[in-house]
Simulated assay, not measured.
Amino acid sequence: MDDMGSDKIDADIRRGRGAVTNRAGRFEEFQRERVDDGWTEEPLPPFRTEVSIEQPRSVITKNSSPDLAFDRSLNPYRGCEHGCIYCYARPTHAWLGYSAGLDFETRLIARPDAAVLLEKELRRKSYQVAPLALGTNTDPYQPIEGQYQITRQVLEVLERFQHPVLIITKGALIERDVDILSRMAAKGLAQVGISVTSLQADLSRRMEPRVPSPARRLRMIRTLSDAGVPVRVMASPVIPGLTDHELEPILEAGRDAGAIAATYILLRLPGEVSDLFQDWLEEHYPDRAQRVMNQMREMRDGQDYQSGFGERFVGRGVVAELLKQRYQKACRRLGVTKTLPDMRCDLFVPPLAAGDQLSLF
Rank of each mutant, 00 (worst) to 15 (best):
317 G>E: 07
126 S>T: 14
70 F>Y: 12
102 L>M: 02
194 I>W: 01
31 Q>H: 12
222 R>Q: 15
66 P>E: 03
93 H>F: 13
88 Y>D: 06
44 L>D: 05
104 F>C: 06
360 L>R: 14
281 L>P: 08
137 N>Y: 13
240 P>C: 05
342 D>T: 11
175 E>K: 11
65 S>V: 08
48 R>Y: 10
141 Y>G: 01
149 Q>I: 03
130 A>G: 13
319 V>K: 15
48 R>L: 12
39 W>C: 13
340 L>H: 04
74 L>V: 10
201 A>R: 14
134 L>C: 02
45 P>G: 07
286 P>H: 05
31 Q>S: 13
271 G>M: 08
176 R>G: 05
278 Q>G: 04
296 M>N: 13
331 C>W: 01
207 M>N: 05
88 Y>P: 03
359 S>C: 09
111 R>P: 03
108 L>K: 04
59 V>P: 02
110 A>Y: 04
121 E>V: 04
359 S>Q: 10
28 E>S: 15
337 T>L: 11
76 P>Y: 01
295 Q>C: 05
268 R>A: 01
94 A>V: 09
31 Q>P: 12
58 S>C: 09
226 D>I: 10
300 R>N: 09
177 D>K: 05
252 E>Q: 15
328 Q>V: 14
314 V>P: 06
114 A>N: 04
222 R>Y: 11
353 A>T: 10
85 I>G: 00
131 P>V: 09
307 S>Y: 11
216 R>W: 06
293 M>Q: 10
115 A>D: 04
239 I>W: 06
108 L>N: 01
127 Y>T: 08
69 A>E: 13
258 G>N: 04
30 F>E: 14
90 R>N: 06
90 R>Q: 07
47 F>P: 05
100 A>C: 09
55 Q>C: 14
126 S>C: 09
154 V>H: 00
223 T>A: 15
30 F>N: 13
281 L>I: 09
292 V>E: 06
352 L>K: 10
212 P>V: 04
225 S>F: 09
222 R>I: 11
31 Q>N: 13
196 V>G: 01
83 G>S: 03
265 I>F: 07
37 D>G: 09
354 A>L: 15
2 D>G: 09
60 I>D: 04
123 R>H: 06
136 T>S: 12
351 P>R: 00
355 G>M: 06
122 L>Y: 01
